[in-house]
Design a protein around this nucleic acid. Structure first.
Length: 189
DNA sequence: CATACGATTGACT
DNA sequence: GTCAATCGTATGG
Protein backbone atom coordinates (compact mmCIF):
# COMPACT_ATOMS: atom_id res chain seq x y z
CA UNK A 1 0.00 0.00 0.00
CA UNK A 2 1.50 3.33 -1.08
CA UNK A 3 1.72 6.31 1.24
CA UNK A 4 -1.08 7.96 -0.78
CA UNK A 5 -3.27 4.91 -0.27
CA UNK A 6 -2.44 5.00 3.42
CA UNK A 7 -3.31 8.70 3.61
CA UNK A 8 -6.66 8.04 1.95
CA UNK A 9 -7.20 5.10 4.30
CA UNK A 10 -6.77 7.34 7.35
CA UNK A 11 -9.44 9.84 6.29
CA UNK A 12 -12.68 9.36 8.18
CA UNK A 13 -11.13 7.25 10.90
CA UNK A 14 -11.51 8.15 14.55
CA UNK A 15 -8.44 9.04 16.59
CA UNK A 16 -8.60 9.21 20.38
CA UNK A 17 -5.93 10.82 22.55
CA UNK A 18 -6.02 11.91 26.17
CA UNK A 19 -9.80 12.06 26.44
CA UNK A 20 -10.56 13.69 23.08
CA UNK A 21 -11.79 11.87 19.97
CA UNK A 22 -11.66 13.35 16.47
CA UNK A 23 -12.72 12.15 13.04
CA UNK A 24 -9.76 12.70 10.73
CA UNK A 25 -10.75 15.08 7.92
CA UNK A 26 -7.47 16.22 6.37
CA UNK A 27 -4.06 14.58 5.89
CA UNK A 28 -0.89 14.98 3.84
CA UNK A 29 1.30 12.21 2.45
CA UNK A 30 5.09 12.49 2.78
CA UNK A 31 7.00 10.04 0.64
CA UNK A 32 10.26 9.90 2.58
CA UNK A 33 13.42 9.16 0.58
CA UNK A 34 11.79 10.05 -2.76
CA UNK A 35 10.05 13.22 -1.51
CA UNK A 36 12.09 16.45 -1.17
CA UNK A 37 9.39 17.89 1.11
CA UNK A 38 9.69 15.06 3.64
CA UNK A 39 11.74 15.41 6.81
CA UNK A 40 13.01 11.92 5.98
CA UNK A 41 14.43 13.08 2.64
CA UNK A 42 17.64 13.63 4.61
CA UNK A 43 18.17 10.96 7.23
CA UNK A 44 18.89 12.61 10.60
CA UNK A 45 18.29 11.87 14.28
CA UNK A 46 14.90 13.57 14.02
CA UNK A 47 13.71 11.62 11.00
CA UNK A 48 15.13 8.28 12.10
CA UNK A 49 11.76 7.11 13.45
CA UNK A 50 10.32 7.15 9.92
CA UNK A 51 12.91 4.54 8.96
CA UNK A 52 11.37 2.25 11.56
CA UNK A 53 8.17 0.18 11.91
CA UNK A 54 4.82 1.57 10.72
CA UNK A 55 1.89 2.76 12.84
CA UNK A 56 4.12 4.78 15.15
CA UNK A 57 3.72 8.48 15.83
CA UNK A 58 6.27 10.91 14.44
CA UNK A 59 5.76 14.13 16.42
CA UNK A 60 7.82 17.20 15.63
CA UNK A 61 7.78 20.82 16.76
CA UNK A 62 7.72 23.74 14.42
CA UNK A 63 7.35 27.41 15.31
CA UNK A 64 6.38 26.37 18.81
CA UNK A 65 3.62 23.97 17.70
CA UNK A 66 3.41 20.19 17.75
CA UNK A 67 2.48 18.24 14.62
CA UNK A 68 1.63 14.53 14.56
CA UNK A 69 2.31 12.01 11.78
CA UNK A 70 1.68 8.31 11.46
CA UNK A 71 4.63 6.39 9.99
CA UNK A 72 3.39 4.20 7.14
CA UNK A 73 6.34 2.16 6.02
CA UNK A 74 7.89 0.32 4.31
CA UNK A 75 10.87 1.22 6.48
CA UNK A 76 13.29 1.67 3.57
CA UNK A 77 10.97 4.32 2.12
CA UNK A 78 10.53 6.28 5.40
CA UNK A 79 7.08 7.56 4.47
CA UNK A 80 4.57 9.11 6.85
CA UNK A 81 1.17 10.81 6.86
CA UNK A 82 0.72 14.19 8.57
CA UNK A 83 -2.57 14.60 10.45
CA UNK A 84 -3.76 18.07 9.45
CA UNK A 85 -7.36 18.39 10.69
CA UNK A 86 -10.15 16.59 12.47
CA UNK A 87 -13.66 17.12 13.76
CA UNK A 88 -13.97 16.80 17.52
CA UNK A 89 -16.68 14.21 18.18
CA UNK A 90 -16.00 13.44 21.85
CA UNK A 91 -14.25 15.15 24.75
CA UNK A 92 -15.47 18.55 23.64
CA UNK A 93 -14.90 20.18 27.03
CA UNK A 94 -11.29 18.97 27.20
CA UNK A 95 -10.65 20.15 23.65
CA UNK A 96 -12.07 23.56 24.51
CA UNK A 97 -9.87 23.78 27.60
CA UNK A 98 -6.81 23.08 25.47
CA UNK A 99 -7.77 25.32 22.56
CA UNK A 100 -9.65 28.18 24.17
CA UNK A 101 -12.65 30.03 22.79
CA UNK A 102 -12.77 29.00 19.16
CA UNK A 103 -15.58 27.71 16.94
CA UNK A 104 -16.30 24.00 17.15
CA UNK A 105 -15.15 23.34 13.59
CA UNK A 106 -11.86 25.16 14.29
CA UNK A 107 -10.88 23.13 17.38
CA UNK A 108 -8.88 20.65 15.30
CA UNK A 109 -8.24 22.71 12.18
CA UNK A 110 -4.57 22.75 11.19
CA UNK A 111 -1.87 20.30 12.34
CA UNK A 112 -0.73 22.39 15.31
CA UNK A 113 -4.25 22.98 16.50
CA UNK A 114 -5.21 19.34 16.04
CA UNK A 115 -2.27 18.09 18.11
CA UNK A 116 -3.07 20.69 20.75
CA UNK A 117 -6.74 19.64 20.96
CA UNK A 118 -5.67 16.01 21.29
CA UNK A 119 -3.00 16.75 23.89
CA UNK A 120 -0.30 15.16 21.72
CA UNK A 121 3.28 16.24 22.48
CA UNK A 122 6.83 15.00 21.96
CA UNK A 123 6.13 12.58 24.83
CA UNK A 124 3.99 10.61 22.34
CA UNK A 125 6.84 10.19 19.85
CA UNK A 126 7.22 6.52 18.88
CA UNK A 127 3.78 5.50 20.24
CA UNK A 128 2.11 2.69 18.27
CA UNK A 129 -1.40 3.93 17.49
CA UNK A 130 -2.75 0.39 17.24
CA UNK A 131 -1.65 -0.44 20.79
CA UNK A 132 -2.60 2.65 22.80
CA UNK A 133 -3.46 3.42 25.49
CA UNK A 134 -2.66 7.14 25.21
CA UNK A 135 -3.31 7.44 21.46
CA UNK A 136 -5.61 5.02 19.63
CA UNK A 137 -6.54 4.91 15.94
CA UNK A 138 -10.00 3.62 14.99
CA UNK A 139 -11.07 1.31 12.19
CA UNK A 140 -11.08 2.12 8.49
CA UNK A 141 -14.10 3.97 7.10
CA UNK A 142 -15.28 3.25 3.59
CA UNK A 143 -17.77 6.00 2.78
CA UNK A 144 -15.48 9.03 2.57
CA UNK A 145 -15.55 11.38 -0.44
CA UNK A 146 -11.98 12.61 -0.92
CA UNK A 147 -10.58 15.75 -2.57
CA UNK A 148 -6.92 16.39 -3.26
CA UNK A 149 -4.53 19.29 -3.81
CA UNK A 150 -1.01 20.57 -3.14
CA UNK A 151 0.41 20.36 0.37
CA UNK A 152 0.25 23.39 2.65
CA UNK A 153 3.31 25.46 3.42
CA UNK A 154 5.97 23.25 1.87
CA UNK A 155 8.80 24.90 -0.02
CA UNK A 156 10.01 21.90 -1.99
CA UNK A 157 7.86 19.69 -4.23
CA UNK A 158 5.13 22.27 -3.67
CA UNK A 159 2.95 21.10 -6.56
CA UNK A 160 2.55 17.44 -5.66
CA UNK A 161 -1.17 16.93 -4.97
CA UNK A 162 -0.53 14.92 -1.82
CA UNK A 163 -2.90 16.75 0.52
CA UNK A 164 -6.15 14.81 0.87
CA UNK A 165 -9.30 15.91 2.66
CA UNK A 166 -12.93 14.97 3.20
CA UNK A 167 -14.79 16.79 0.43
CA UNK A 168 -16.74 19.79 1.68
CA UNK A 169 -15.89 19.26 5.34
CA UNK A 170 -15.94 22.56 7.32
CA UNK A 171 -13.09 21.50 9.62
CA UNK A 172 -10.52 21.34 6.79
CA UNK A 173 -7.82 24.02 6.94
CA UNK A 174 -7.26 26.69 4.28
CA UNK A 175 -4.60 26.24 1.60
CA UNK A 176 -1.51 28.38 2.02
CA UNK A 177 1.30 28.18 -0.46
CA UNK A 178 4.85 28.75 0.76
CA UNK A 179 6.03 32.25 -0.12
CA UNK A 180 9.08 30.79 -1.89
CA UNK A 181 7.59 27.51 -3.06
CA UNK A 182 9.45 25.48 -5.68
CA UNK A 183 7.88 23.11 -8.14
CA UNK A 184 8.60 19.38 -8.01
CA UNK A 185 10.70 19.77 -11.13
CA UNK A 186 12.91 22.47 -9.60
CA UNK A 187 13.55 20.56 -6.40
CA UNK A 188 14.16 17.34 -8.30
CA UNK A 189 16.72 18.91 -10.57
C1' DC B 1 29.56 27.33 19.42
C1' DA B 2 26.74 30.30 16.16
C1' DT B 3 23.28 30.93 13.12
C1' DA B 4 19.49 30.27 9.90
C1' DC B 5 15.24 28.25 9.09
C1' DG B 6 10.59 25.84 9.09
C1' DA B 7 5.19 20.09 7.05
C1' DT B 8 2.43 26.99 11.79
C1' DT B 9 -0.64 30.21 13.49
C1' DG B 10 -3.01 34.47 14.41
C1' DA B 11 -3.19 39.22 13.69
C1' DC B 12 -3.04 42.73 10.63
C1' DT B 13 -3.14 45.91 5.73
C1' DG C 1 -1.87 40.00 0.49
C1' DT C 2 2.00 40.74 4.76
C1' DC C 3 4.40 39.99 9.17
C1' DA C 4 6.29 38.20 13.48
C1' DA C 5 6.25 35.00 17.47
C1' DT C 6 9.01 31.13 18.82
C1' DC C 7 12.25 27.07 19.56
C1' DG C 8 13.97 22.59 18.22
C1' DT C 9 16.82 21.06 14.35
C1' DA C 10 20.17 21.09 10.97
C1' DT C 11 24.31 22.82 9.35
C1' DG C 12 28.73 25.08 9.26
C1' DG C 13 32.93 26.99 11.76
Amino acid sequence: MSVLDRARDLLGRELTAYGVTVRITEVEAYGGVTDPASHAYTRTARSEIMYGPPWRLYVYRIHGHHCANIVTGPSEQAAAVLLRAGEVIDGLELARERRGEVAHEALGRGPGNLARALGITLADLDTDVRMGPAVVLGDRQSDVAVSEGPRVGVRRAADRPWRLWATGDPTVSAYRRHARAESSEESAG
